[in-house]
Design a protein around this nucleic acid. Structure first.
Lengths: 341, 341
DNA sequence: ACGATCCATGAAAACCTTTACATCGGTCGA
DNA sequence: TCGACCGATGTAAAGGTTTTCATGGATCGT
């Protein structure tokens, strides 16, 4: 009962009174077939409800028109919005999108490559920040398909990356704080290892320097980008009693930690302290006070990444190795003018 | 340069010194081939790095081992968590997962069916709440593949549904409020058309009835489940000056509206009013006060739905037409004991 | 010792396209 | 008028599997 046998190209050919080759051409290269013939074929297709069998086509053409998306956590809120962009662009160009949730598990990552090596996918979008395990190193033979990284660049490789311009975004954010009158601005989220954190810190420094403010190293605090790290950094600050008027956080999760900490200490935000985030994740508008932050153009990132990948797949030479999109300042209620003291 | 020609089953056969039929059997039905032969084949496979070409296999087998997921909005936070479950279970059973973002656009929906009619997907998961446009009604011939609905049942159809037990969950939620001492409990989100709202309202009514509380119709307010509707209902309540001690909201989005409205009126929550949500969407823990709510077992819903679908695909008769999973009470800070007045 | 049975394997068909090459009638140019 | 070319179409191969059916040798029971 599964499928009542579907119409094939032969059925269409028989009805239209032509050969299967002509049917194929009528579909794929309409100019190469006479008007009258094309008409008859169209009619036959309509009558049979024919759809070309994608498997047969892929087998013959050696391309599946499918893109595999490898992500460590599909549940990540950051993921879904980029996914919409990826999917939209792919669909627009006749490609399908396959999801691979790796959970940072090497075995699962390797497993997903079966889609590549079995010709089920033509290209790869990487959210993982590294080349898939089990390729290159492992088999050795199986070559990697065209790839584009998103969310996190792939270190030590020439995989093109599409993402937000962290340096510029951070600079804009910090400039916004400065424009509100802040001069003692903390940076929460210093990191030796995370490239994203470093870029954002550089943007912060550039903004301060541009305004003639000298950076106070006691206002630069470590953080790994988690909510907990934001909380800890804030507590640390109060213990040392070197206080800023504004907190520039490496991301929204960190900012949340800062806000929680400040709220717990019964400070009135943003009157007593300003907090600025980065990312504009979904809860940013729900915290109290709602978070002023830099919005990542996630939809656009997805579209751009897919566009880049498909262009490569269709033979265009690689345009750019890195596409950086501008983050947008979203003004909400967590930033105000510093009070005079 | 695309793919340096991959090893085929023939290459393996040649190296192992057997026919391709034997190689195929060695892979798919190992018991049917002699130990020694199997060993030789395995070795040849290892040496060539052979992977079976999924396209050829699908073509021959007439099944792709792919599941298409049709969702109106892939960016919806509700979506991604269910997706993880779907994906996990599918992957465990050797299936792949294809994403179709329809944006409630009939044309896109129809478009995605090409994956079905071209044999690129064997089954369908529906987030949309209705049968895909352009099938059944339209072509007439093309039959629908096995399907399972999730998130929203498909009305007027026999598509099996996997979801949360709304009635039972709402009853538990309302009972929690009652156990805290509330007796004047409002229900925000009455709806003539939405099945989910109705079930939750019934659960609410059942709990009140069970506790011998008579439902005050003035405390039942309309709402379509949006944040704005929650805000409006609350304002409406204050205008009419018939006040509850607790608000039971049809979902978290509505609860957020209620909280915003109460916060704006400078009430101290949960001392003066309690608010209960339903769903446990991601921001629920970030609002202030953090929201006490019923958690949908989203991961489990995804797994269960995929399991049901794959079972059908593999020929098992349909087990159940509806699978309802229990929601879990998550106690946070938006519910307290009513103050005495 | 011989027919029946069984097990391991091989040959070939089928799955449905796309496309290189061949064919055929007609048109154009000289 | 004839050869060259052209445009429309058909023939057949190729793409890589799975699976039915056939084959041949070994084993078993009597």
């Amino acid at each position: 009962m599964q499928h009542q046998k579907l119409a094939t190209i032969e059925d269409v050919a028989a009805i239209a009174g032509v050969s299967i080759a002509t049917v194929s051409r009528a579909i794929n290269e309409p100019t190469k077939v006479a008007d009258e013939t094309r008409r008859r074929v169209s009619e036959a297709i309509a009558r049979t409800g024919y759809t070309t069998n994608a498997m047969a086509r892929s087998l013959r053409m050696r391309r599946s028109k499918m893109i595999l998306i490898l992500a460590p956590d599909v549940g990540d809120p950051n993921f879904s919005n980029i996914l919409v962009g990826l999917e939209t662009e792919a669909s627009k160009r006749g490609y399908g999108v396959l999801i691979g949730n790796t959970q940072n598990d090497a075995a699962r990552e390797t497993d997903y490559l079966r889609f590549i090596s079995s010709n089920q996918a033509d290209g790869l979008i990487l959210f993982t920040g590294h080349l898939p395990y089990g390729f290159g190193s492992d088999g050795g033979e199986s070559r990697l398909p065209p790839m584009v990284a998103v969310n996190e660049p792939v270190s030590d490789s020439d995989v093109p990356f599409v993402g937000v311009d962290n340096f510029e975004g951070a600079r804009i954010a910090a400039e916004h704080l400065i424009s509100q009158g802040h001069r003692r601005i903390a940076f929460i989220g210093h990191s030796r290892s995370r490239a994203v954190n470093q870029l954002r810190e550089q943007g912060y420094r550039a903004a301060l320097q541009g305004a003639g403010i000298v950076v106070d190293p006691r206002l630069i605090l470590d953080g790994d980008g988690t909510t907990e790290s934001g909380r800890q950094a804030t507590e640390h600050m109060f213990v040392r009693d070197v206080l800023p008027t504004a907190f520039f956080c490496v991301n929204d999760a960190t900012a949340l930690g800062v806000i929680i900490s400040l709220n717990a200490r019964r400070y009135d935000l943003p009157r007593e302290f300003s907090v600025m985030g980065f990312d504009d994740i979904s809860f940013a508008s729900f915290v109290s006070p709602s978070l002023t932050t830099m919005k990542q153009p996630r939809l656009k990132i997805g579209e751009e990444a897919m566009d880049l990948l498909l262009a490569r797949l269709e033979g265009e030479p690689l345009r750019r190795k890195e596409v950086l999109l501008r983050a947008e300042l979203i003004v909400r209620n967590s930033v105000g003018r510093p009070r005079r003291d």
